[in-house]
């Protein structure tokens, strides 16, 4: 039963240590029943560790966990019947077919034979795997494996679903389908705890988001509240023909109302709370023999908020994961 504030997952002071490594450091948060709650952070931030503790795969060192009113701190099995888990790696049985894998996962939650077989067929259809249902899991492509792993996580119709990087390592079309399924599950009232390092994906799907960095939650708010400070900002990305020393400093002095900084990709980022006029900037550069080759208006997003709060570039997060497990279809 959710608490009086509607929270179905209540975490207070959760701390988890692996030897000398502090994986999760005194984090507290609530997840409200029926919402999509995003856990956003780079590799090694503590996202998977948090999921493992909440689902009973890891023991916590300090703190308390309550799920649907059930005290799980010392008895993590107590609420497992309420949970569906889609892990960050496809971990079904290679020697079983897709259909057998789904039926087996249903049986683990006590579903009767007829019920689980009907549900397995429906899920294979829904996930576009009906034609591959009789094939062994080991013959599936990466995207198919991911989708079947997702289906296995929801076969028992859990009211709470943990999704650990569900679109990592799969193609764009499969990722889009997975996102549609997440939206559909949300519409059905399922509470979704969702970890990702794809910022745009979190922005699109989550109602509330927590930024987690080095085991600590650095910010946790409703997505629209997180975006509020950057909405209404005008941002221009300028490409120039040559890079002059102190160019950004000179621009700042000449246009004191603008925020000016160099981007890692060699552009000049100009920001203001008022609409920015390009002509004076182009003239200023021209007078110094620098040609403005491109000026692109940038719509501020959650990425800007994330970078501002954590100091971590979104590109770096993606790059890390792609090196680790291959690019998925985070965005399309």
């Amino acid at each position: 039963m959710p608490s009086s504030n509607g929270a179905i997952i209540e975490v207070a002071g959760l701390t988890k240590r692996y030897g000398d490594v502090l994986a999760v450091d005194d984090i507290s948060f609530d997840v409200v029943k029926g919402e999509v709650f995003g856990f956003l952070g780079p590799n090694g931030a503590g996202k998977t560790t948090t999921i493992n503790v909440l689902t009973g795969l890891s023991r916590l060192d300090a703190g308390t966990v309550r799920i649907d009113g059930i005290e799980c701190t010392h008895s993590p099995k107590a609420a497992q019947h309420l949970l569906g888990i889609v892990p960050d790696e496809s971990n079904l049985y290679p020697e079983l077919t897709g259909f057998e894998n789904l039926c087996f996962c249903g049986a683990l939650y006590g579903m009767r034979r007829k019920e689980r077989e009907t549900r397995a067929r429906d899920l294979l259809e829904e996930f576009g795997l009906a034609d591959a249902g009789d094939r062994k899991f080991e013959t599936y492509s990466k995207g198919m494996k991911r989708k079947l792993t997702f289906a296995a996580g929801v076969i028992h119709r859990p009211p709470i679903l943990f999704l650990d990087e569900p679109t990592t390592g799969i193609d764009v079309a499969s990722a889009r389908q997975v996102r549609q399924i997440i939206s559909e599950l949300h519409r059905q009232g399922i509470t979704i705890f969702f970890t990702t390092h794809y910022i745009e994906e979190a922005e699109r799907l989550c109602e509330r988001i927590a930024f987690i960095v080095k085991g600590r939650i650095v910010k946790a708010e409703r997505t629209r509240d997180l975006l509020q400070p950057v909405r209404g900002r005008d941002v221009l990305l300028l490409s120039v023909s040559k890079w002059a020393e102190n160019l950004c400093d000179e621009l700042s002095r000449a246009f004191p109302n603008l925020g000016v900084e160099a981007t890692p990709s060699g552009q000049v980022r100009v920001e203001s709370t008022e609409p920015i006029s390009i002509a004076p900037l182009a003239r200023f550069l021209d007078e110094r023999g620098i040609e403005l080759t491109e000026a692109r208006r940038h719509l501020p997003s959650l990425e800007d908020v994330f970078v501002e709060v954590t100091g971590i570039g979104a590109g770096m997060m993606k790059g890390e994961k792609e090196r680790a497990g291959g690019r998925g279809g985070g965005n399309s």
């Binding site: 689902t55 009973g56 795969l57 099995k77 971990n91 079904l92 290679p94 006590g110």
Partner: peptide, 15 residues
Amino acid sequence: RQRSFDRLLLAPISL
């Protein structure tokens, strides 16, 4: 090793 055992550990039955 291949983490399919985790599925069993996540099932709501006693160890």
